[in-house]
């Protein structure tokens, strides 16, 4: 393996650790109270936010209704860096449709930029009109843009959004390692030679290590977002089964004494195992209800969860872990090989 690949692997992983853990989270709105308002009334809204600096940079507060019309707060009282009170005067007439409307809360200031909470309030309104002077169309309002480097704030996820650089990259790297392991097994059956089998074994060993790390980081993530490390979600169960299949591969290896026979049988099982892995991880969880993103109708890696700033850390992390896996497998392979040569020498 080339030296620059090793340096690249280490530096990408170090970069993903540093950037992934140190870049702050963007501003976000945690909670609003009350959540129901009636048109024609005055209402003070208590707003709790996250990672904002309202004491040093005064915010303006808007409510966005239907057809992109915004209502500006009459007055804003800053209680603390992360708490404000905003007074709204809801006019009797509202643009849009009569009945109950969903309002989006938008807080804007110079230091933090926009914080947005969709569906923050319900406004009940009877009279509607196409244009109301208090409700200003979106294109007539100037909003400040934040310029600093940040990860998006998402409800429930909050700071755990950083785990995507570790959990997801480890699983991607694991899939690559198992794939390579299968390819080496096919080569072993096609071409022969104990080398391919040793490589297949090393890839599978590192793959299972990455898989376990992926499972543990996933459990850590689930503790904070799903409420428990193991909630018997179909994706969790299937991942555990997938690791069991590969553990069985090593049991099979150790149960056969003859080296030639061992390598051929193990190669056959390895191919079988990889093919069995695909429905376990990618087909079955998609058909059943699941909490995991990408399954049971949930989106995954969409623009909501992965913005451009995150991509700048996520893709290097994936490449870094993949290269690290290849390097580890390479080292393991050489270790097995030396061991074997040593044994051969000892026998003669």
């Amino acid at each position: 393996m080339k030296t620059w690949v090793k340096i690249l692997a280490v530096s990408l992983i170090v970069y993903s650790f540093i950037a992934g853990l140190l870049v702050p989270l963007g501003p976000g709105i945690k909670k609003v109270s009350p959540i129901k308002v009636v048109a024609g009334n005055q209402q003070i809204l208590d707003i709790w936010t996250y990672n904002t600096h309202y004491s040093s940079s005064k915010p303006t507060v808007f409510l966005k209704g239907e057809h992109d019309h915004l209502l500006k707060a009459t007055s804003v009282e800053v209680v603390g860096d992360q708490k404000i009170k905003a007074l709204f005067n809801f006019p009797k007439i509202t643009p849009g449709t009569p009945g109950i409307q969903d309002l989006t809360l938008v807080i804007n200031n110079q230091k933090d930029g926009n914080s947005i909470l969709p569906g923050a309030l319900f406004l009940s309104t009877d009279e509607v009109s196409a244009s109301v002077p208090q409700w200003i169309p979106l294109d007539q309002i100037k909003l400040e843009k934040a310029t600093f480097f940040k990860f998006p704030y998402r409800k429930i996820l909050e700071e755990t959004i950083r785990n995507i650089y570790f959990h997801v990259s480890l699983w991607f790297a694991m899939i690559l390692l198992f794939l390579l392991s299968m390819i080496r097994s096919i080569q072993h059956l096609r071409v022969g030679g104990i080398r391919f089998d040793q490589q297949a074994r090393s890839y599978a060993e590192v793959g299972i290590l990455f898989g376990m790390m992926g499972l543990v980081t996933g459990m850590l993530w689930a503790t904070y977002t799903w409420g428990a490390p193991w909630s018997f979600d179909i994706k969790q169960n299937m991942s555990a089964v997938a690791l069991l299949i590969y553990l069985a591969y090593f049991v099979l290896r150790s149960s056969i004494d003859d080296n030639d026979k061992k390598s051929r049988i193990a190669a056959a099982y390895n191919i079988f195992a990889f093919v069995a892995l695909i429905p376990l991880l990618f087909v079955i969880p998609r058909l059943v209800d699941s909490l995991h993103p990408g399954n049971g109708g949930n989106p995954a890696l969409g623009s909501d969860d992965l913005d451009n700033t995150m991509r700048m850390v996520f893709y290097p992390a994936v490449v870094g872990w993949m290269l690290m896996g290849l390097w580890m497998a390479n080292l393991l392979y050489r270790y097995h090989r030396v061991n074997e040569l040593f044994l051969e020498k000892a026998n003669t």
Binding site: V241, L244, I245, A248, A276, V283, I284
Partner: peptide, 9 residues
């Protein structure tokens, strides 16, 4: 050991 995980799906 080999069979049970494979037949789970």
């Amino acid at each position: 050991i080999l069979g049970l995980p494979v037949v789970i799906p």
